[in-house]
Amino acid sequence: MSKKNVDDYLTEGMYGTRLPKDHERKQFLGTLRERIVLALTKGQVMSNKGLEQLEEAMKENPEAKLIINGHVSNRFLKEEKKIADKYNIPHSTITNQEAEDTDIGAVLTYDYAIDKEEIFIKEEPEQPDAKQETETEDPSFFSKIKSWFD
């Protein structure tokens, strides 16, 4: 292990000791990815997508806690907090400058590693109705001519 120099001591004195995986902590509202049960993006929180999955995850993980991004307006977080209160899940809001750079709106997490493979909710693309597709589909000039000879 290398010796610390004066700059290292000054940096630690001004900013505190370095935490391992600091970039991960900034992205996931102060926790590590390996501890997360479920992560919701800001868009999912604002549109209330993923509430069912969040509630199911809270049922299955009663010892977890909910961390909320403080840069998301409280009016969007009412349902998440309501579900957390329903299952006696403690929740806290993180409002620091580092959390501002992340796209994460809320995470359900433990204080220890659980190494869950998939922590994000897969958003299904909206499927347009078949009727709308046929109405908007405009055949090309050549396909019209070809249909005359068929």
Rank of each mutant, 00 (worst) to 15 (best):
residue 147 S to M: 09
residue 36 I to Q: 00
residue 41 T to S: 15
residue 101 D to A: 15
residue 50 G to M: 03
residue 82 K to G: 09
residue 47 S to Q: 10
residue 7 D to H: 09
residue 146 K to A: 11
residue 60 E to M: 11
residue 14 M to E: 09
residue 3 K to L: 13
residue 76 F to C: 05
residue 41 T to E: 02
residue 23 H to L: 15
residue 4 K to P: 04
residue 141 F to H: 12
residue 88 N to Y: 10
residue 19 L to I: 08
residue 22 D to Q: 15
residue 96 N to W: 06
residue 147 S to V: 04
residue 112 Y to C: 04
residue 7 D to A: 11
residue 60 E to K: 14
residue 143 S to E: 15
residue 104 I to N: 02
residue 72 V to C: 03
residue 130 A to H: 09
residue 67 I to R: 00
residue 44 Q to S: 03
residue 150 D to H: 14
residue 46 M to S: 12
residue 43 G to E: 08
residue 52 E to D: 15
residue 120 F to S: 03
residue 118 E to C: 05
residue 142 F to Y: 14
residue 11 T to I: 11
residue 85 D to T: 10
residue 138 D to G: 04
residue 62 P to A: 06
residue 101 D to Q: 11
residue 72 V to E: 02
residue 27 Q to D: 05
residue 74 N to E: 15
residue 71 H to Y: 14
residue 66 L to K: 00
residue 100 E to S: 14
residue 90 P to I: 10
residue 85 D to Q: 08
residue 77 L to P: 00
residue 21 K to V: 07
residue 36 I to W: 01
residue 76 F to H: 11
residue 3 K to C: 08
residue 70 G to M: 02
residue 105 G to H: 04
residue 73 S to H: 13
residue 34 E to C: 08
residue 59 K to F: 07
residue 67 I to Y: 03
residue 69 N to L: 02
residue 53 Q to W: 00
residue 124 E to I: 12
residue 42 K to N: 09
residue 142 F to C: 08
residue 14 M to L: 15
residue 96 N to L: 09
residue 78 K to H: 09
residue 116 K to A: 04
residue 119 I to E: 00
residue 106 A to P: 00
residue 27 Q to C: 02
residue 124 E to S: 11
residue 8 D to V: 08
residue 140 S to Y: 05
residue 121 I to C: 05
residue 16 G to A: 05
residue 82 K to H: 13
residue 139 P to K: 06
residue 74 N to S: 15
residue 48 N to E: 14
residue 145 I to Q: 10
residue 55 E to F: 01
residue 127 Q to V: 14
residue 45 V to C: 08
residue 105 G to K: 03
residue 140 S to C: 09
residue 113 A to T: 13
residue 42 K to Y: 02
residue 68 I to N: 00
residue 79 E to H: 10
residue 68 I to V: 10
residue 10 L to A: 13
residue 132 Q to S: 13
residue 139 P to I: 04
residue 147 S to W: 01
residue 65 K to D: 07
residue 42 K to I: 12
residue 100 E to L: 15
residue 57 A to S: 14
residue 42 K to L: 05
residue 139 P to S: 06
residue 103 D to K: 08
residue 62 P to T: 07
residue 57 A to F: 04
residue 66 L to E: 02
residue 77 L to A: 07
residue 131 K to Y: 13
residue 3 K to A: 13
residue 50 G to I: 00
residue 105 G to Y: 00
residue 59 K to S: 04
residue 53 Q to P: 02
residue 6 V to E: 10
residue 65 K to C: 06
residue 102 T to K: 05
residue 88 N to G: 05
residue 60 E to N: 12
residue 142 F to D: 14
residue 35 R to S: 06
residue 126 E to M: 08
residue 32 L to P: 01
residue 107 V to T: 03
residue 20 P to W: 05
residue 124 E to M: 10
residue 66 L to T: 01
residue 64 A to P: 01
residue 86 K to H: 10
residue 25 R to D: 01
residue 16 G to Q: 07
residue 43 G to F: 06
residue 117 E to A: 14
residue 141 F to C: 07
residue 143 S to F: 03
residue 98 E to M: 08
residue 115 D to N: 15
residue 128 P to T: 07
residue 134 T to W: 11
residue 28 F to W: 11
residue 36 I to V: 10
residue 146 K to H: 10
residue 56 E to G: 08
residue 46 M to P: 01
residue 34 E to N: 13
residue 132 Q to P: 00
